[in-house]
Nucleic acid binder design. Sequence first.
DNA 1: TTTATTTGTTAGGTTACCCTAACTTTATAT
DNA 2: ATATAAAGTTAGGGTAACCTAACAAATAAA
Lengths: 219, 219
Amino acid sequence: MPTQATENYLKALYSLHLKNPEISLTELGQRLGVSKPTVNEMIKRLEKEGWVMYERYKPISLTEEGKKMAALVIRKHRLSEMFLSDIMGFGWEEVHQIAEQIEHLKSDIFFDRMDEMLGFPTSDPHGSPIPDREGNMIKNNYKTLSQIKEGETVELKALRSSDKEFLMYLNKKEISLGVEIKVNNIEVFDNSFTVSYGEQVNVVLSQAVAAKLLVEVIK
Amino acid sequence: MPTQATENYLKALYSLHLKNPEISLTELGQRLGVSKPTVNEMIKRLEKEGWVMYERYKPISLTEEGKKMAALVIRKHRLSEMFLSDIMGFGWEEVHQIAEQIEHLKSDIFFDRMDEMLGFPTSDPHGSPIPDREGNMIKNNYKTLSQIKEGETVELKALRSSDKEFLMYLNKKEISLGVEIKVNNIEVFDNSFTVSYGEQVNVVLSQAVAAKLLVEVIK
DNA sequence: TTTATTTGTTAGGTTACCCTAACTTTATAT
DNA sequence: ATATAAAGTTAGGGTAACCTAACAAATAAA
Ligand SMILES: [Mn+2]
Ligand SMILES: [Mn+2]
Ligand SMILES: [Mn+2]
Ligand SMILES: [Mn+2]
């Protein structure tokens, strides 16, 4: 049975592998905040368990078994976030830190019950997909708001970052998932967006913010 | 910050100290299922943290700080059991194992929210008292059913054992907390009790069972 | 009171996770 | 192609929990 540290390595490996299946030891270490020798040592353990493929001086890759293990931890994380938000009433900026701990609990019935109480959700409070019991994760290919043209209207579907500061910024701006955003104007020199949504008219969003909002064009 | 192992030692120390404040290393080891040298080593760590008092070859005792720490872990355990039972719908025979893990989460807001959702309960699904935020635990002095006289009627308030097998036995007999039990007859040679409660008439409970039911006389 | 028995301690090991310092290999730049 | 930089490895340590085997101290029995 995987330890907490192991589960955290698998999660990190999974999210890195989505961009590039060839994972470097250095970036994994940076992601987890541990030194390169520590990663080196841990990777050998993961290899022995059959979760990664690894040869000296070569990049690391996840095995199918490793991907499944990782997806199941992500499932537990995201179900927990959903439970904390929808059942317990926490804000989307509070759930990640607590879910980071809950995800390591070993109890199938516990997570199954969460799933059931939530009505088998397919995404978490930040719009990220929840893998199914077999570890299959749907990858939605939303655009970022920064890719949208003037005059178009979109629906906010997910976020690229679940950083607490960012989420609190969105709270302040009264931006939440599902909101319909109309792009009124795009400033050429800094790519800032002037948008309207809900009660808000002509709100300016910086390029940095627009790049983190995942949307779907509705008209 | 205490580790999981540390919290488990504190809980075990707390429950042993209630019967005898002078705790032997051997009984602590037995309770936790670890060897004597392991306990010996851990006790030195607990002493360094100021949670126990300890001198070579002498019995162990909890400091005030240690008692508080322990009670706060017990609080988290019992709140979790209550949450699992009342909010998530688990049976009283299922909650302990899951709570054994949840109790180690580090998040005050999480347990405060549980507490709030439950309406600030004072006892867990097995009738055991939940310590308050300061670690004060009320000790209720219920009698056991085996101490009750023929003809008396009692209310089941708590259990002396939360063993899964025992709880499943109670389920089968349809005995739950709050039920009113009338003692019809006590068999002299084996101390078995013939009782009536709810829909059940003249059910025979062994001495072993009667000794584990904590009750309050109502008439 | 000597002898058992129980209880507690020491010594020496193991695994999982973490570290820094020093070195080697591979990749990049000039 | 050589020098430099980046990436990866080894060596050597550390702490928290666990273990067994062997021994010492305290307690109970004969
Ligand atoms: Mn998260
Ligand atoms: Mn985690
Ligand atoms: Mn319990
Ligand atoms: Mn525990």
